[in-house]
Design a binder for these strands. Structure first.
Lengths: 242, 242
DNA sequence: CGGTGAATTGATGTCAGTCAAGGAGGGTGG
DNA sequence: CCACCCTCCTTGACTGACATCAATTCACCG
């Protein structure tokens, strides 16, 4: 039922910093339970002030903000190992919402326990800050993409980043991984129209770089994708897992 | 020469959380010195791993990332009270650079002292995380702007945000504040061309909303600006000062 | 079998980028 | 004191990338 932190499948991945057994024990105490949600479920909502924070054990979702005029900006995609609700945890209010794109299972923590972490486990508190800093880093990259890359480069960049993440999480095998989003989600993430996103995906397919269809992403040429997106093709930075 | 934290002029502003005298004493110990830089000086550079971190005492600057192909994305503008170098502090590497747009004076802290903060002053460590979280919030807003607003709305949004910040920092008097950037900086922040930014500023002037010339920003109609930018016209959230 | 949500494709329009030229101010050196 | 650069701002003309509109197909489902 409830996955024991000692057997957490994520912690075995090498993208994540190793944890001492005492740290794991602390996390176990800190973990309130597990939550399973269906695809489409809102997990945290913008402006909300939920008493719980989560880390993703499995499944995928997305963070997004809505404008009054009905438009939507996808902030980023949520993958296993991601921590959700840090903003609510420290600032008392979410400034974006998070929703599930597939079934997800989440580890649930009590928001108030964050204080306890800062008082009793400075190393873990440091890790929280690390996560926030790395999040800032990723948002900066995204900003660079929206501001400076054209549609083809932007889509290439997005698929490349997703592929690297998938690889580091063991979701990808032989250049193939599940990618259960709609084209509209990618369009909203890159500030492009659905139609243009579709046509741009077509170009990447024609160029034999990547194919995304029926919720499956196939990377045919990582190097070419990276080159087009003008990014390095190196592995993502190791990071803490909460 | 060196401003004593006990007399820090910024701490008196109500945007910042009040600090107990013991907290102020700790910050004093933590502060290594003060640095004055000229306009145009790079303070931290992308990929760098500086041993120092800073908070801005006076002056303005900007954070930016560069692409290989010579383009530039301005991440945001740096104002008094801003903390610089958190990424280097926790992750060991800056993912954007920071440079001065005017003369600036910076409080200098030792990067290694961050650890000490986490061990000895959990409340201050919490504040650091708060800062990271609020930064994430701002980047999310910017992302929304680049992705979903057209040029006129985007420029209005940027000027509105700058004006709110200026007001909360006491830089603005009667709708007028110094804004010592180039139009190119704003263009690079919004992902627009210099030419189009210029023309868009012209439209805002014609509409009697705001005028920005000769490094001075004049807001003629905050409400109208907020409405055009589709944002609330409320005061910025109070935040910690490090 | 109708209905709904997603992907696809073509036709048309427009917002913003690019190119080009000129002007205003400030600094430097003859 | 004037000629010269240099940086930044300004404006007009042209172009193109991307948005919008519209129609079709397909899969899934009650």
């Amino acid at each position: 039922m409830k996955t024991d932190c000692r057997n957490c499948p994520l912690r075995r991945l090498e993208v994540f910093h190793p944890m001492s057994t005492s740290e794991v024990d602390f996390m176990r105490k800190f973990k309130m339970g597990e939550m399973a949600v269906e695809a489409g479920t809102p997990i945290l909502s913008e402006g909300g002030n939920a008493p719980q924070i989560y880390t993703v054990l499995s499944g995928m979702g997305l963070r997004a903000k809505l404008t009054e005029c009905g438009r939507r900006q996808v902030i980023n995609f949520v993958f296993p190992g991601d921590f959700i609700g840090l903003q609510a945890g420290v600032m008392g209010e979410m400034t974006h919402s998070v929703e599930a794109s597939t079934e997800m299972t989440l580890c649930v923590f009590d928001r108030k326990a964050i204080w306890q972490v800062f008082r009793e486990h400075p190393e873990r508190a440091f890790d929280l800050t690390w996560l926030a800093a790395i999040e800032e880093h990723f948002l900066g990259e995204t900003l660079l993409t929206l501001g400076q890359r054209d549609a083809l480069q932007a889509v290439a960049w997005a698929l490349h980043r997703i592929a690297r993440r998938g690889l580091s999480l063991g979701l990808m095998e032989a250049g193939v991984m599940p990618l259960p989003y709609r084209q509209q989600d990618l369009a909203d993430a890159l500030g492009l129209s659905l139609v243009h996103t579709n046509k741009t995906l077509g170009k990447l397919r024609d160029r034999q770089l990547a194919t995304w269809a029926e919720s499956v992403l196939r990377i045919h040429d990582v190097g070419g994708l990276a080159e087009l997106a003008m990014v390095e093709n190196d592995a993502p930075m190791r990071r803490p897992l909460i």
